[in-house]
């Protein structure tokens, strides 16, 4: 069992607390320009994902990566979550996982 490099579950607002660290989030793809994905976080922030895979516009994309900046993530792994993902529930999870129950996740 290896728990040496957990990824914090973040939304757009919480991302800035993890700059330089490993994070995971979900964005809704708005446009894709040669490996750079511009998307909206589950709390409405505009995020840029570098080295992202090609995922259709309007689909939700999960990203594991390093937070380079408070609005930029360098992707390590991307997963297409499809067009029907409950962003609100995920956003609620982000808040819980970084507040009262942080000790369970990091």
């Amino acid at each position: 069992m290896d728990t040496s490099s957990p990824a914090a579950i973040v939304n757009g607002e919480i991302l800035n607390k993890f700059v330089g660290r490993r994070v995971r989030t979900v964005v809704q793809v708005q446009r894709n320009e040669g490996g750079m994905v511009f998307g909206q976080s589950t709390d409405g922030h505009q995020l840029t994902i570098k080295s992202a895979m090609d995922i259709p516009v309007s689909h939700f994309m999960e990203v594991y990566g390093i937070a380079e900046h408070n609005q930029t993530i360098r992707a390590e792994v991307c997963t297409d979550f499809g067009p029907n993902f409950d962003a609100k529930a995920f956003d609620g999870l982000c808040k819980l996982a970084n507040d009262k129950f942080k000790h369970l996740f990091l």
Partner: peptide
């Protein structure tokens, strides 16, 4: 259904 992932972690809580 990728909502299962969200749900899983909420269930963990």
């Amino acid at each position: 259904n990728f909502n299962d992932i969200t749900h899983h972690f909420l269930h963990c809580i």
